[in-house]
Write a protein that binds this DNA or RNA. Sequence first.
DNA 1: TGGGCAAATTAACTTTTATCAACACGAATA
DNA 2: TATTCGTGTTGATAAAAGTTAATTTGCCCA
Lengths: 236, 236
Amino acid sequence: MLTERFLRNKRNVSLSLGERECLEAAISEVQTIEPRRVLVKAGDKLDHSTLLIDGIMSRHIDDHNGLRQLVAIHVPGDFVDLHAYPLKTLDHDVASMTTAVVGMVPHGKLDDIISERPQLGRKLWYATLLDAAIHRAWLFRLGRLAAVGRIAHFLCETNARLAAVGLSDGRQFPLALTQTDISEICGLTHVHVNRVMRQLREERLCIFRSSVVEILDPVGLAARGQFDPTYLYIDQ
Amino acid sequence: MLTERFLRNKRNVSLSLGERECLEAAISEVQTIEPRRVLVKAGDKLDHSTLLIDGIMSRHIDDHNGLRQLVAIHVPGDFVDLHAYPLKTLDHDVASMTTAVVGMVPHGKLDDIISERPQLGRKLWYATLLDAAIHRAWLFRLGRLAAVGRIAHFLCETNARLAAVGLSDGRQFPLALTQTDISEICGLTHVHVNRVMRQLREERLCIFRSSVVEILDPVGLAARGQFDPTYLYIDQ
DNA sequence: TGGGCAAATTAACTTTTATCAACACGAATA
DNA sequence: TATTCGTGTTGATAAAAGTTAATTTGCCCA
């Protein structure tokens, strides 16, 4: 089922089978996207939103020097640009980081869902607010944490998000990002990311190699990143 | 009218008179709050949301050393914690920065609005997504801009937001924040904020003194902060 | 009018991170 | 097997921002 990971294990919002089928039916088309494709540019007018089924996608804002700040990454089960439904245009770009499989959901079908199934509509709203909660955690990361903490926090978050949708066992997970990607997420240079990665390795906290993250000391890594997963609103 | 500034001058979402009256009627109580009061702690269960009528409020996340990162500031017309309506608990604290006048809106009344006036419900959703768009701009600010740029960007944003609700003439506006507040917004120390403020003053870009911001060179300041107001979704 | 106090300001010094420049490694390919 | 290219790694140096500690300013109030 394409929507099986949507809001999976999220507090207060388990979808009924009927709701899940309804959402599934709203997917007009499934596409496979190459890695590193920019799908949406800031300002584009959108008539559909994108449910990520497989792979990793990102949202970013460009600066005047052609550098970019990632403002979100998305894992399977996330509605990548659902906020484009009320907002109509986006304030940032959307891109694939890996090969990605996505389901396109026309906004017209969302209109139908809202009017026919207001409870499901509320859950879509909720999904966009989870995104905002993650934005806030990223603000904390960038504003208050030094380089080691930022990367530790990011790795803990990604582990928790992937675990919630069954893509991490809590210790180890595939993550096909480069150190440059991490630098664009954490507001650092790729050179400094490399140094921090070595430090995490030497302190036996975490190893990130060959597109696999292995967390050796989950408690220690969380402490380094002052990571508290409450903001992810994961069940239990 | 208490709700007169809500979504004022925002693109695609002008409220009809009926909608505004409906929202007005949903305010159960108006309160005046002293400066520097923490109204909501992370994790609190909320049964109402707060419309800011006058003053400045903030949302922040505490770190392990008792320092805080502000994740949002709110100006009159903003629904400070509307996202608590779908989420039920917050991931951060809410506080007043100045003396503030707020309208309390019970979540039960929002339920009624959603079911009886789905169009207005959509606009409430929209309002929470504007918050998220501002979060993303703050991520850009913290992740890609150096100290001068961060402060320039913040001052431009605040000017634009206040101007949209009639509280700035585009050049000068009252802003009762301390340099320490700015440091908690921009992820800097208050000492460094002070140095940057002097620099902005010496470059004749902006003067912030006695709780008044005076923008001497709007274009220059925006350039310094790479500020593009599109993300605020302001009309025109 | 003189304390008291929060906020602003400044200086000296330290730490962190960026910048610049090589070089190494490994997978894909000719 | 040699080549290429993206990615990772390392070192030297510079720049930015943090830390610590005074000092000043402006304002409220006894």
